[in-house]
Design a protein around this nucleic acid. Structure first.
Lengths: 121, 121
DNA sequence: CCTTGACTTAAAGTATACTTCAAGGCGTAA
DNA sequence: TTACGCCTTGAAGTATACTTTAAGTCAAGG
């Protein structure tokens, strides 16, 4: 799979994919005549990156995680700890987001009341 | 209320509060002998800023919103539209976050299985 | 009176995550 | 063979949101 197809599939730009590879999050992706050809493992990796990115993990943290992954079984405990920590952080964010959304709804209600008032003047 | 007290109360740094004022999100906050003295309106504003920030609004967007607020009643419709748009964006993020959290839980399960396996070897 | 500590300013620096640019290579259709 | 389109590279540029630094002010306590 070439870079543009991958970019389309995951809704990210081709330069971003190249950037991820440069940062060591990906590959090195195999080249055919110098052109990247993403294999299933690369796609799975992108899937992982996008997932933990959504969960709030930074590229630096991902790099650390991936480096541990390449070091093999001895790092399983730490990798598990990192993922569990990230889960807990994400769940906190989830709660905070829910609160802020409720807060925002209240503020919208306030503005709506003001709007109704100004229209009846 | 002086800047350090406000900073402590909202768990943000004093330089960040000064930065927000410089960006036009706050005040100008009243000074007593050159020292900022935050009034209730300022605190309410900070509350608003932190809420919409949690919801994913950028400082630029907040600035736009606050500028409209200062322009008065004629901007109510647009302000309401901005807040409703932000609500919808935040709710989308909430859904995506929930999905990514589930995804992450699955990945944690996978690693845990691997871990159990390597221990029984 | 003088030191201390908390505040002030403007400006420069940092971190994160990309994006854009300039110059160029490769393979296929005309 | 030449033009087209998609790909390549390294390096520089951008956006966002702060943080840090340097130099200085001011009121209160010893």
């Amino acid at each position: 799979m070439k870079i543009d197809a991958v970019a389309q599939r995951y809704q990210i730009s081709a330069p971003t994919l190249r950037y991820y590879e440069r940062q060591g999050l990906l590959g090195p992706v195999q080249r055919v005549h110098g052109v990247r050809d993403f294999c299933q493992a690369d796609l799975d990796r992108i899937d992982f990156i996008l997932c933990v990115k959504q969960c709030g993990m930074t590229l630096k943290e991902m790099k650390h995680f991936i480096d541990m992954y390449h070091q093999g079984d001895t790092t399983i405990d730490e990798r598990l700890a990192v993922l569990q920590h990230q889960l807990s952080v994400s769940q906190q964010r989830q709660v905070q987001l829910a609160q802020s959304i409720e807060h925002l709804k209240t503020k919208i209600g306030d503005v709506r009341a003001l709007q109704a008032h100004s229209q009846t003047k």
